[in-house]
C-alpha cells in the first residue's frame, strides 16, 4: 500500500502523518490518531455523527479524503474543551439534559460550535439548519436546541 505524507493543523497543533490515501479524515482520526470522540454512524454523510470543523466549517469527516486536509485546520470534539475547561456548548449539553446515548453528541456539538463561532445570536431556524444534518434518535432535539441557545447566551455574556 502506497503511503502519502500529509500535514495539517489538528486542534491547534501541527501534525504530520504518513497515510493511506484511501483513508478518510474519519478513518485517520479514529484509527491512526485514536481520537475516537468523532463517531462513525453511517460512513456516507447521512447522519453527521462524524462532524468536525474544517477551516471554520462543519463537515462530515467520513466524506473528506485525508489528503484533502493538507495544510488546513481541523478541530474535533477533543480540541474544544476538557473536564477542567469545558466549552460553553459542552457545559450546556450537560446541564440541559441534551445528551442521552451520547453517540451523536460530539458531532452535534461540533455542528453547533461551527454555528456559534460565526453567529452570536442564532435564531431557532439557524440552529435547526446547523444541526439538521446531525441525526439524533434519542432526544427529539428539544433539549439540544435549548442547550445551543443557552450556550450562545453564555458566550455572548462572557
Amino acid at each position: 500500500m502506497s503511503k502519502l505524507k500529509v500535514a495539517f493543523q489538528l486542534n491547534d497543533k501541527d501534525v504530520a502523518l504518513s497515510v493511506d490515501p484511501n483513508d478518510t479524515l474519519l478513518d485517520v482520526l479514529r484509527g491512526q490518531l485514536n481520537l475516537t470522540g468523532t463517531k462513525k454512524g453511517c460512513g456516507k454523510g447521512e447522519c453527521g455523527a462524524c462532524t468536525v470543523i474544517l477551516d471554520g466549517e462543519a463537515v462530515n469527516a467520513c466524506l473528506i479524503p485525508i489528503m484533502k486536509v493538507m495544510g488546513r485546520s481541523v478541530q474535533t470534539i477533543e480540541g474544544i474543551g476538557d473536564e477542567k475547561n469545558l466549552h460553553p456548548l459542552q457545559e450546556a449539553f450537560i446541564d440541559k439534559g441534551a445528551i442521552q446515548c451520547g453517540y451523536c453528541t460530539p458531532g452535534m456539538i461540533m455542528s453547533s460550535k461551527a454555528l456559534l463561532d460565526k453567529t452570536k445570536s442564532p435564531t431557532q431556524s439557524e440552529i435547526r439548519e446547523a444541526i439538521a444534518g446531525n441525526i439524533c434518535r434519542c432526544t427529539g432535539y428539544v433539549k439540544i436546541e435549548e442547550a445551543v441557545q443557552a450556550a450562545a447566551e453564555k458566550m455572548r455574556d462572557s
Partner: peptide
C-alpha cells in the same frame, strides 16, 4: 440540498 455539512463542501 442534503445538510449543512454537505452544502459546506
Amino acid at each position: 440540498v442534503g445538510s449543512l455539512q454537505i452544502r459546506n463542501v
